[in-house]
């Protein structure tokens, strides 16, 4: 309850800060539109030459694209700004303020900043999903919807945990921002179903930088190609990464305060 109220407070502050720079909204809108044009244009060219891509029909790839925008938008709205602020705080020493607050530091660090205009990506993602689902309506029942919700949640948690782990490295290294660039670069690859990639690349995108769980897997759920194993792996991966990232965070924090020294 307390943390929910905190979350809402930060959300409000994020909105206030964004309202200070209203023009950014229009700029963000242009950027989202461009991103969308690139993605849809790519699909259009591909489907000029084939009826399906590795077994994925146009409407199914549209659903995948919707998930890609949705998760990408959430990363850019909530996860990335907070993690960037956290790394900045370590560099400037202002993390001390966070640590002297009577609340869980991981929670504070993870919800401390929002860039709300980036929500346009989330909007586009939802719209794309709606269109795609409209076309796929015959194959999506309540079971698929439930699995979609579950895999989407798992994907979101996996992405968050990976970001937390990467950001936690800044307790030891100064320039970690660049690692985050790696994540965003790999995420771009997740715009296409990972099933088309050669095995080595699929392995990287599934386990090393697990973006596959954020886009391909939820899209599989909604296009009726989900098997229980994948569902189990996604949920298990989310649980494991949550625990691992929490442990790593606490370890980093102990290092920061010098318990191990």
């Amino acid at each position: 309850m307390h943390y929910l109220r905190l979350f809402l407070t930060y959300l409000k502050l994020g909105l206030l800060a964004e309202l200070e720079y209203r023009a950014n909204f229009w700029i963000q809108l242009v950027q989202t539109a461009m991103e969308l044009a690139l993605a849809l244009g790519g699909l259009a060219v591909v489907f000029r030459h084939t009826g399906d891509l590795g077994g994925w029909r146009p409407a199914e790839l549209l659903a995948l694209l919707g998930v890609y925008f949705l998760i990408g938008g959430l990363i850019r709205t909530m996860v990335r700004p907070s993690m960037q602020k956290f790394m900045e705080d370590i560099r400037k020493g202002t993390l001390d303020f966070t640590l002297t607050k009577p609340a869980d530091a991981q929670v504070l660090v993870s919800i401390q900043r929002f860039e709300l205009w980036k929500i346009t990506d989330v909007g586009v993602g939802i719209a794309l999903l709606a269109i795609a689902l409209g076309r796929l309506s015959d194959s999506v029942g309540p079971l698929q919807a439930a699995m979609f919700g579950l895999t989407l949640l798992s994907g979101g948690l996996i992405v968050y945990s990976v970001w937390l782990i990467l950001a936690t490295f800044s307790f030891w290294f100064v320039k970690v921002e660049n690692i985050l660039v790696i994540f965003m670069t790999m995420y771009e690859a997740a715009r296409w179903p990972v099933t088309i990639y050669p095995p080595w690349l699929r392995w990287i995108l599934t386990f090393l930088i697990p973006v596959a769980f954020a886009t391909t897997v939820p899209a599989q759920a909604v296009t009726g190609r989900m098997d229980p194993t994948t569902l189990g792996i996604a949920a298990g991966m989310a649980g494991i990464l949550l625990v691992v990232s929490r442990a790593f965070w606490l370890y980093g924090l102990r290092f920061y305060s010098g318990a191990s020294a």
């Binding site: 591909v46 030459h49 891509l53 590795g54 660049n178 670069t185 690859a189 296409w192 088309i196 690349l201």
Partner: peptide
């Protein structure tokens, strides 16, 4: 940092190469 920025320049052609290879094979 430089090496990391290069990654984008490798990933993008690689992704489209995979996409078009898939199409061509089909």
């Amino acid at each position: 940092a430089m090496l990391i920025w290069l990654l984008g320049g490798i990933m993008e052609p690689l992704v489209y190469l995979v996409v078009w290879t898939t199409v061509a094979q089909q």
